Simulated assay, not measured.
Amino acid sequence: MVVGESGLGKSTLINSLFLTDLYSGRTQPSADEKIMRTVSIGKKTVDIQEKGVRLKLTLVDTPGFGDALDNTESFYPILDYIDQQFEQYRMDEMGMHRTQIRDQRVHCCLYFISPYGHGLKPLDVECMRQLQDKVNIIPVIAKADCLTPAELRHKKDLIRCEIDHYQIKTFQFADCDSDDDSEWVKQDSDMKSSIPFAVVGSTTVVRDSMRNINVRVRPYPWGMVEVENPAHSDLVHLRSMLVRTHMQDLKEKTNDQLYEQYRISCM
Rank of each mutant, 00 (worst) to 15 (best):
M247H: 08
N214E: 14
E33F: 00
V53S: 09
T38A: 02
G4C: 08
I163L: 15
T148S: 15
D164C: 08
D256H: 10
R102Y: 11
R37T: 03
D83C: 11
L57Y: 12
L235N: 06
K44H: 07
E228M: 11
D208H: 08
E252D: 13
N136M: 03
D67P: 00
A231V: 07
R105S: 09
I78Q: 05
A144K: 02
R98H: 13
D47V: 06
T245Y: 11
S16T: 14
T245H: 09
N212T: 06
A150L: 10
E183F: 14
D61A: 09
L147W: 04
K186A: 14
K192W: 03
C176I: 10
L152M: 13
D21A: 05
D103K: 06
I82W: 12
D47A: 09
L242I: 13
G223N: 11
L123C: 05
V39A: 00
Y166K: 05
V53W: 05
L250M: 13
I41W: 04
V3A: 06
Q28S: 15
V2C: 12
I82D: 10
E50Y: 03
K156R: 15
S194M: 13
T204N: 12
M96K: 14
R37D: 01
P139F: 08
N229K: 06
P29N: 03
T62W: 05
G66R: 04
C176V: 13
M247E: 13
L22A: 02
E33L: 00
T58A: 08
S6D: 12
D67M: 03
N15T: 03
G4M: 10
E226S: 10
H118Y: 13
D67Y: 03
Y111V: 03
P219F: 03
T148K: 12
F112T: 00
C108P: 01
F171S: 02
E50F: 05
V227H: 04
S30Y: 05
R37V: 00
D180M: 14
T58I: 11
D83E: 15
Q130M: 10
P196T: 06
Q104F: 12
R244I: 10
N15V: 01
V2I: 15
G64Y: 02
K251I: 13
D92I: 01
W184F: 15
V217H: 07
T72L: 04
D83N: 14
R244K: 14
F171A: 12
C176Q: 11
R129E: 07
Q84G: 09
A68V: 02
V217R: 02
D83I: 06
V125N: 04
K192T: 04
L250P: 06
G201L: 09
H97Q: 12
Q172R: 15
R160W: 01
M94K: 14
D80R: 15
V200W: 08
S24F: 06
K186F: 11
Y259K: 01
R239E: 15
H118P: 00
K251C: 13
Q85R: 15
T245C: 02
D256F: 05
